[in-house]
Design a protein around this nucleic acid. Structure first.
Lengths: 219, 219
DNA sequence: GCAAATTAATGATTTATTCAAG
DNA sequence: CTTGAATAAATCATTAATTTGC
């Protein structure tokens, strides 16, 4: 198990030869997933262009990977963590309906703020949520657009691992720029009565309701 | 009014000097908008990477522009045309409620399929909607991801118009690849009862309800 | 006329949804 | 069933129109 450097069997593409031409999708190696999850736990959610590049270069040591894969991974992981949490919230709130409510059943509407008042630790060991002292909005600070295309994965018929290990020292990936910090903005799920006639609860990604930590257990 | 070649006053960026450093967003010139709308009318909706590049090179003759700007423009324009159409549909259906319904007022719910049975021409002079003979789904065929980032606009602090006018002859932009063709897929607005407790109608971008052309006038 | 103040358009991001490979 | 990939919808934020008071 060499597991790095050049495109080999564990290249992340079915066609073994490393050419991967037109044969579907990236499948991450175990190491890559581990590392990605680590980054996520470090608090990275929507990595900037530079971050993506850096992460990509690193993970390339463990198999084939492109920038867009990293991008997508964070997109999906973030979204799916969120929905996982949401489900949890709802089921809990639902249970609370039984525990507290005088009405025996309230099926369609969740009786919002019955939360298990703070059990001590907050969930992700997020980077501290400092507010930027300068009055610049997060989306300017991050320098992230919303997509990649055009160049990365452009002529990517030939992946050619040409990212050169040059600036390998410069990778202070973990301390990180202020990028990941600002992007919480308490995702305004402010009582949106959108679809499914469910009243969703105003929480941010950590399960905080407003400023009040709500409940903190995790899968 | 020279209006081309090098970055000048009409460069699409406020800072006149063509450096555009840190001064937020692209504002297209009149010519650029015209051409983009032309492309749209030609049937382009979700241009492929190559198309974006080609369009970008062309429009650069009329002022500063990047690939991502083109990408965004199509995203937004498509979406906003769609919602414009939707509104129109709804207001018509709403009126039809008054014309046909026995109930004098049906405020929240639109009584779906009262459409002005076909008035002869379909709206956009779209490329013909041929079905791909190969059994490959549209999203694979197009080769388009959903985003760009990373490379284009990456170090774009220095736009440096280095796209070289080299392959200028190769631009057969209008005949176009089969790309734009497949992407209609009758945008499954299949009776989505999302927000606003409005029952929306199942139509594609041309105002066709199912296979039945619905109504065809435009602003 | 002409800025400040509002409002409308629209460029740019993020989030939600969908599709399909494995 | 999980999850990589892609698109569409929703949202944010800035610029352009425009209105308004002088």
């Amino acid at each position: 198990m060499e597991s790095h450097s050049t495109a080999e069997d564990e290249s992340g593409w079915k066609g073994s030869s490393g050419a991967h031409s037109s044969v579907s999708r990236w499948s991450p190696t175990k190491e890559q997933i581990d590392m990605l999850e680590n980054f996520y736990k470090q608090g990275i959610r929507t990595p900037s262009t530079e971050q993506i590049q850096q992460i990509t270069s690193r993970l390339r040591a463990y198999g084939y990977i492109e920038g867009k894969n990293v991008f997508y991974w964070f997109q999906n992981h973030k979204a799916r963590q969120r929905q996982k949490l949401k489900q949890k919230q709802q089921s809990i709130a639902y249970c609370n309906c039984f525990l507290h409510a005088s009405h025996p059943i309230c099926q369609n509407v969740v009786c919002a703020p019955y939360c298990l008042q703070k059990s001590g630790f907050s969930f992700y060991p997020h980077q501290p949520k400092v507010l930027a002292s300068v009055g610049i909005s997060s989306r300017i600070e991050t320098g992230s657009f919303g997509m990649l295309r055009i160049c990365d994965g452009m002529q990517s018929e030939h992946p050619d691992y040409n990212y050169s290990t040059s600036n390998r020292e410069a990778l202070t990936l973990f301390p990180l720029h202020p990028t990941g910090i600002l992007e919480e903005k308490t995702t305004h799920h402010s009582v949106d009565v959108t679809d499914k006639s469910f009243v969703s609860i105003a929480v941010d990604e950590n399960g905080h309701l407003g400023n009040q930590p709500c409940f903190n257990f995790q899968y």
